[in-house]
Design a binder for these strands. Structure first.
Lengths: 148, 148
DNA sequence: TTTTGATGGTTACAAATGAAACCAGTTTGG
DNA sequence: CCAAACTGGTTTCATTTGTAACCATCAAAA
């Protein structure tokens, strides 16, 4: 019997990673060129735009970022005056983060671009393929959550 | 009408990235703990194990790595004496890379672990879900290739 | 030829990242 | 009440990464 070989091109972890990397890299062009944002900064903007006000910890949970990434992204957005920090009344360790007018404006500008990007990506698939990717991703997400 | 909001948790680029990141991180434990390899090093090992002999450029293409990553991974595997370089006869810029006995041994040891990882991941999905993820990923890959 | 432009691969430098130490404040148990 | 353990968040340091410049060689064109 022949020695075992792994075909990298068919190996799911590799394919997933490459796919995500390609998509993410292409999408990042939008917020990079437009506003010079990094991915953690974009996610922070996006999280706050979506939810209004959040703490750093909540941001990290929502957007799957390590707390150091959050900390740095928040610091940068604060430097740009895209967000402000408000100390929590009860717990002085906590800060509530909110977008400023400028931050909201940037968010509002980004949303349609993000949606268009996703739409155009999915438009290249058939209806059945779109259903497949959505279903498959959801299933894997669920499988990974449960694993712990 | 309400201002447009983007739900990050449903945004495909984000979901893909997070999924790939989680899977890849979990899988990386295997080659990291086992041999202290980085991802580029693992991919290099995997590429050479699969194909026998390759040039650095070919490796980069097969495994979607930037040439600096390849260069560094190759240097490290060479340092460990897991691979050797053979200059090309006709083109002296080119080097052909081949795993040594030690390299092959490490590869042979990794393959079943990699396959088991993939199998166990997919085992948590139903048959239909497995088909969906495979089909969806393939469709997106194709869509992205064509885009250029 | 000689020049010009690609190509395989490495290196240098700056930016992004992760792990762990850290600080301040808060909770818990004795 | 106080020490120990924990939590939100920041900083430090080492490692990884990407970009661009670079060296050597090769191919094409003048």
């Amino acid at each position: 019997m022949e020695p075992e070989i792994l075909e990298l091109e068919s190996f799911l972890p590799y394919r997933l990673y490459r796919l995500a990397d390609t998509v993410s890299r292409e999408f990042s062009r939008i917020y990079k060129e437009r506003h010079g944002l990094t991915r953690p900064e974009w996610r922070t903007l996006s999280g706050l735009g979506q939810r209004g006000t959040m703490t750093a910890t909540a941001l990290g949970e929502q957007s799957a970022m390590h707390k150091t990434k959050v900390s740095r992204a928040v610091a940068e957005l604060e430097r740009r005056r895209w967000l402000t920090r408000t100390p929590d009344e009860n717990d002085r360790r906590v800060e509530h983060l909110t977008l400023t007018k400028t931050g909201v404006a940037a968010y509002r500008e980004m949303v349609p671009l993000a949606k268009a990007f996703e739409r155009e990506l999915l438009a290249r698939l058939s209806e059945a393929e779109r259903a497949a990717i959505v279903r498959g991703v959801a299933a894997l997400e669920k499988a990974l959550e449960e694993k712990t």
